[in-house]
Design a binder for these strands. Structure first.
Lengths: 342, 342
DNA sequence: CTGAAAGCGCTTACAG
DNA sequence: CTGAAAGCGCTTACAG
């Protein structure tokens, strides 16, 4: 015991080099899998590493311009919402798959709702702990100030008003088109009073889906004033919004909800006042979450390829890390999936 | 444009010092909020920082023994299970609350199920990117080899066979006691054939809950051979296990499931073959997840304080980071919550 | 193929 | 209160 060095000190690369009788430069080359090392030397170093139980202090690479081997997925919500919303689960799954295949570690970061909420997260991102970041769910109230970040960033959804528009990449979904088609279906089915439960207007997804609704309504010569209520994409907000809507326009006979969770809330509110779906009121959601298959009646909705967003975002980020040219933007298609509610 | 330095290079602390007309030592002191700096000097440095848009390369601190300001929560499951199991959500919520209060960033890490699954995660943990780690859901099949980690670690649940038993802290729940009380309730209610759906035996929670069942059964002089079936804590496994059980022991009239999700599966399986709960078969779960309140009938279960585990683990970790003496272990109480299923 | 040396960005005794 | 200098662990031209 007393003949070895202090057992609490982790071995460093210099220790490994010494034990193997080589320079730290060579030890580093072995550590990083460089080709030009004599097999015998390589073996010496490797065995020194394993007998010392060497583990590289990866953070030290950062100061030297190296990579950390990890990528952040920043979800601009509190921990509890991260888990409550299946959207995040699926996007994470998509990202995780790609990253794992590339041998990179996915690091999930959440933004607490404190006053200076962004400080710790931005500090982390800025701190050289990750090679790049995927940012999900950003909205006006939580506008991560990513201005000075030294790493590539890809957003899920067109970011709200980025300081430097051209600087960031994003992968979006055709929110406007999807909302328009959904609304059009309600109109084509002969519904007279087609309302919408819009999403938060500080997120482009909320804005674009409302825009799609308005275009369809205007195109059909409808006056949609008073037929727009707002929610936050969550179920409870959909339920409340529907109640308000029913108060204001008792004769409403169709609702386009800008998210499935809000549509589920709408279904509950309608059932509580005894309206039949789709008999009295037709309902269409947006997202195509699994829950929509189990509602009563099953939910007609606009499918967005959430998991694919995760994989595409990751692919784009990997391209940037690989030194791709300009930031790229992609917009994925949506698809109307018809079930029983409309 | 051309009169300033290359715009792509982030400013370093040396740049700040130069701009402020001080040494890097002083700049560093301001950056770290040391007290002994003349107010005027401090202001100069601060304004240089903000006008240069300085962001510290936090990773560089690691090599120097400093703190990163972040803590990992390692969930030994794939991304999708992380989101599927409410247990992780609640423990994360508990940890997140404590950490946010301490101004630390929570970093969620997941362990992909690839062959050498642990490599990236351990590399990350070993890399100096976090100050400590909370480890959740570890089991025999995924035995993170944390032996050489240079940072403090706290486990959720007594770890399986740690290499160095005294080295790690953990916060556990009285699994054995809870399981025993649940089983005893079934026996006291006059049930004759009390079976259990046990959890995975490569996790101490699975082992301890089975032990509690066995003790109660033995205490009542029961022969419980053939009355133990196994699942993986998930719903589907509970459903299948119940089907097997029914095959083997058609006259079973009580089931203690080692998790609520498995109990939910049991309820489904029982309903499918037309058994009434609790009339024909009484069922008790373990966890007290929200889902148990909405089953038909509502689920009698053993409550474990999951969120508190998260906060206690975090508190313990913070104590270790603060230089507390020995690793500590805590065991939290469970509580039988009686609803309609038993 | 390998080593001596300089460097990455930040921190910390040690002087003053 | 402040600075010059050495150091953290790792990497990378530059020679050979």
């Amino acid at each position: 015991m007393s003949s070895v060095e202090s057992p609490e000190l982790r071995p460093t690369l210099a220790d490994v080099a010494r034990a193997a009788g080589v320079s730290t430069a060579t030890a580093s080359r072995v550590l990083n899998g460089f080709p030009r090392v004599r097999p015998k030397t390589r073996r010496q170093v490797e065995s020194a590493m394993s007998s010392l139980g060497y583990a590289r202090q990866r953070a030290a690479r950062a100061s030297t311009g190296g990579r950390t081997g990890s990528v952040a997925l920043v979800v601009c919500e509190e921990v509890l919402r991260l888990f409550a919303d299946p959207y995040f689960a699926r996007i994470s799954a998509g990202a995780g798959k790609e990253l794992t295949a590339a041998g990179l570690q996915l690091v999930l970061l959440t933004v607490p709702a404190t006053e200076d909420y962004q400080a710790p997260v931005v500090r982390y991102l800025d701190g050289g702990h990750v090679d790049g970041a995927l940012v999900v769910g950003m909205h006006g109230r939580r506008p991560l100030d990513l201005g000075w970040l030294g790493i590539p960033v890809v957003f899920a959804g067109r970011p709200v008003c980025p300081r430097e528009p051209g600087r960031f990449s994003y992968v979006d979904v055709d929110n406007r088109g999807g909302a328009q088609r959904a609304t059009q279906r309600l109109i084509d089915a002969g519904r007279r009073t087609v309302a919408t439960i819009a999403g938060p207007q500080d997120m482009t997804a909320g804005v674009d889906r409302l825009l799609g609704y308005r275009q369809a309504a205007a195109g059909a010569g409808r006056d949609h004033r008073g037929l727009v209520v707002f929610g936050d994409f969550g179920q409870a907000s959909g339920e409340h919004a529907t109640a308000r809507l029913l108060d204001r326009k008792p004769h409403v006979d169709a609702i386009f909800a800008a998210s499935d969770m809000m549509a589920v809330g709408a279904l509950r509110a309608l059932r509580r006042v005894g309206r039949r779906v789709p008999g009295d009121v037709a309902v269409i959601g947006f997202d195509d979450l699994p829950v929509g298959r189990r509602t009563d009646p099953p939910l007609t909705t606009v499918r967005q390829p959430i998991e694919e967003m995760g994989t595409r975002m990751t692919a784009e980020l990997l391209a940037m890390l690989g030194g791709s040219a300009a930031p790229g933007c992609a917009v994925l298609d949506t698809e109307l999936v018809i079930r029983a509610s409309a």
